[in-house]
Write a protein that binds this DNA or RNA. Structure first.
Length: 476
RNA sequence: CGAGGUGUAGCGCAGUUUGGUAGCGCGCUUGGUUCGGGACCAAGAGGUCGUGGGUUCAAGUCCCGUCACCUCGACCA
């Protein structure tokens, strides 16, 4: 047994101090460090590897739906931002502006992109002439900068990495179909790769993207019952087409404005992952995106044959496509167990003289802590199977929590009680901004998504006839 | 920007009330013994106490200024 708990719990208690648990976990497990400029984060190799796995999975899905990758510039003329009225109003307060270049004051200031609708719009205007040029389906992997007032690693940083898809279509229907299709891609990705169940739906006007006709979002429930917006897909209508003059000559010989969409997910997904699956010991990473899927811990490493056996096993697992590593440091086994558990590695394989003699390995699951033994022969298949089980178990656990913690409310008091109990709250809403603001004021909860296919009688706030069923929650 | 809080070794902290040689734990270095849930022994290295000024024989400690960071609000992927 451990001598005491003093060193086991290097991280804050997850139940009583979740925000602190989160920052402890992201910094102490080597995912990130704080950058020298306030609000920026350095994503360290262990954290970046998660992002690479996310990229790989998403990119394959984008390609499969006909999208191509490209790269657009970081710097955007300030005037671009002002062409779409809502857009500039929404983003102006948080843009970083470059005013000097080469030691001289610039004639026109440049903004460091907070998002790229404007520059995509400017280029699409040049590229699109005919209906034959449509649709244009482009995605870019990039960094963006938004000068946020308060920041937290992954969840909100001044600079973050993301993917932004920008598409142009001949018709409203097609653009809307694209918007919904990509929201669906995000949802499937979140559930199958991140093992993270999500709520999807339309956002209210208040929560809408600046410049969009309609925004659809995907929100996930975090461990403490708060919501995190994990992805968005916007139907932009002709707003940006008109602002940037994206016109095409249609089959009927008439010049028409294109209909555009944009959609994105960011490194915030990593934060979402952590806040969805963590426990008192630290991170739990779903196998699909875990940088290390199986960590091999040699026991009595100096004894003859142990290191040879662990290396043989590692090579065998890696050859089968499993991300396996061996911890060959001279820390004690107990130290390694705790360290790798904190880092969220889904499966630990202990290999010591006893195992080797018996031709076995000892397996310990991160999600259930269940310890089993299995023969060394056929190790890759055994490990693959276990990893798949862990992946689906994580999803099942998160889904169960998600379903248990949605309650209904008939009035603001119930809504308040619901969110204070760490729940998402379903309630009727009349659709007016005043009620939405009043609810935020009184409960600190905001409208996450409009729930489709359900009806309510009265508004939870004013009691008038309800137009929508809304999922309310406190949000990060 | 409004309200609170914190700055002392890489990390976490004590010391500040009542001024008097700069401390503790972890980590780090070297050597040895260990290894199935955060091992042990021994010897080391490491600090302009955020910063500027003031009071004093003497300031981590008292006074004034200033900066940074954290938490909670307003804003947001």
């Amino acid at each position: 047994m451990a001598k005491d708990n003093q060193f086991v719990n290097q991280i804050a208690d997850i139940e009583t101090d979740f925000p602190r648990w989160y920052t402890d976990v992201v910094t102490k497990t080597g995912l990130v460090d704080y950058g020298p400029v306030k609000g920026t984060m350095v994503i360290r190799p262990y954290g970046y590897a998660i992002w690479e796995n996310i990229q790989k999975e998403l990119d394959a899905r984008f390609k499969a739906t006909g999208h191509k990758n490209a790269y657009f510039p970081l710097l955007i003329p300030y005037s671009f931002m002002t062409r779409e009225a809502e857009h500039v109003e929404g983003f102006a307060p948080e843009v970083a502006v470059v005013t000097v270049g080469g030691g001289e004051e610039l004639a026109e200031p440049l903004v460091i992109r907070p998002t790229s609708e404007t520059i995509f719009g400017a280029m699409y205007s040049k590229w699109i002439q005919s209906y034959r040029d449509l649709p244009v389906l482009i995605n870019q992997w990039a960094n963006v900068m938004r000068w946020e007032k308060t920041t937290r690693p992954f969840l909100r940083t001044s600079e973050f990495l993301w993917q932004e898809g920008h598409t142009a279509h001949a018709t409203e229907e097609e653009a809307m179909e694209e918007t919904m299709k990509m929201l669906g891609v995000y949802k499937v990705f979140a559930e199958t790769c991140l093992a993270m169940p999500v709520f999807t739906g339309r956002k209210t006007e208040k929560e809408k993207f600046a410049g969009a006709v309609a925004t659809f979002g995907m929100d996930a429930m975090m461990h403490d019952g708060k919501s995190l917006q994990a992805g968005t897909s916007h139907y932009l209508g002709q707003n940006f087409a008109k602002a940037f003059d994206i016109q095409f000559l249609d089959k009927d010989g008439v010049h028409k404005y294109a209909y555009t969409s944009s959609w994105g997910v960011s490194t915030r997904l990593i934060g979402a992952l952590i806040m969805t699956h963590g426990d008192a010991r630290g991170l739990i990473l779903p196998p699909v995106v875990a940088p290390v899927q199986a960590i091999i811990v040699p026991i009595a490493a100096k004894k003859e044959g142990v290191l040879e056996a662990t290396e043989a096993l590692r090579a065998q697992l890696c050859a089968a496509g499993i991300r396996a590593e061996t911890d060959t440091t001279d820390n004690s086994p107990g130290w390694k167990f705790n360290e790798w558990e904190m880092k969220g590695v889904p499966l630990r394989i202990e290999l010591g003289p006893r195992d080797i003699e018996a031709g076995k390995m000892t397996l310990v699951r991160r999600d259930t802590h269940e310890k089993t033994e299995a023969p060394l022969t056929g190790a890759p298949e055994t490990v693959q199977k276990l990893l798949a089980e862990i992946q689906s178990n994580l999803f099942a656990l998160a889904k169960k929590r998600k379903e248990e913690r949605v309650v209904s409310a008939a009035n603001v008091q119930e809504l308040l009680a619901g969110v204070e109990g760490g729940n998402f709250v379903k309630a009727g809403w009349c659709g007016c901004r005043e009620c939405e603001d009043a609810i935020k004021e009184q409960t600190a909860a905001s409208a996450r998504v409009l729930v489709g296919g359900e009806e309510a009688d009265t508004c939870v706030c004013c009691g008038k006839k309800a137009k929508h069923v809304v999922l309310f929650a406190r949000a990060y």
